[in-house]
Amino acid sequence: MSDFADYTLDHLDVLESEAVHVFREVIGEFDRPVLLFSGGKDSVVMLHLAVKAFAPSPVPFPVLHVDTGHNFPEVITYRDETVDRLGVRLVVANVQDWIDDGRLRERPDGTRNPLQTVPLLETIVANKFDAVFGGGRRDEEKARAKERVFSLRDGFGQWDPRRQRPELWDVYNGRHRPGEHVRVFPLSNWTELDVWRYIEREEIELPWLYYSHEREVFSRDGMWLTAGDWGGPNDSEAVVNKVVRYRTVGDMSCTGAVESTATTVADVIVEVAASRLTERGATRADDRLSEAAMEDRKREGYF
């Protein structure tokens, strides 16, 4: 142990300070930032950090939610209560609007996750957002491991791994041409466990479906999905009662619940620490499509 232990920060404090530094860089370098806020735990932690970064001023940018129309109703309630409490402006891009006016077509499998990209990009353009905060973490998936904190997107919202700028020290280069924007990932260096430990330490409230509860689910592709208007289950899929919780809360059609009795943050931390599956491997059907699934979606402009 060093002789300056009193002047050494805990790793969560280092990560927090680094994320706050990123928020403050963006407000200094961009005209119209926006934060992607779904009510999912990573976006909740991001918003919490934004509040701390600018205190006692209010958060100086709006939040944006791409609503597939298949989101969990309890998460939408949580989203609305949170933005009201913090006094931040909420912009919603409803995928349903794009389907209704024919700009997008429903997929045969009923999932709307891949349909989010177009509404996201069109809303970014329409609002002239030039920096978009996302909750992506490098530990999530292999393609994300090489993602920058400031990630340049071209006029079509596309990510080109070979055009990404080297990031040295803590100097972030947010320069972009008109029509381009920059995705910013303040949680780049956090792991799933860091996020949960921070939620515990800061006593951050989450949508309750992150904690264990009884739910009617059915099995598809080895995941427990919730029945709902989005089209599940089909006739051959039996609905059963299970004690479950969600590790991520995305579109209902492709976000699976895990069997769990973890009812508190502390329980969840024990469970995550002991888990033998990655967060996305356990709960995201969209990442299982191919070995390079995430890389392909990132190139197209996905989160």
């Binding site: 490098r138 530990d139 292999k142 393609a143 491991a145 090489k146 791994p161 990404q164 080297p166 780049s188 260096n189 792991t191 070995e291 390079a292 890389e295």
Partner: peptide
């Protein structure tokens, strides 16, 4: 080895962060 291009060419082309 993260990106498709690397797997196809069997090389590592960028800085990757591990936790």
């Amino acid at each position: 080895d993260g990106l498709r291009a690397e797997r196809e060419q069997g090389i590592t082309i960028d800085v990757a962060y591990r936790y």
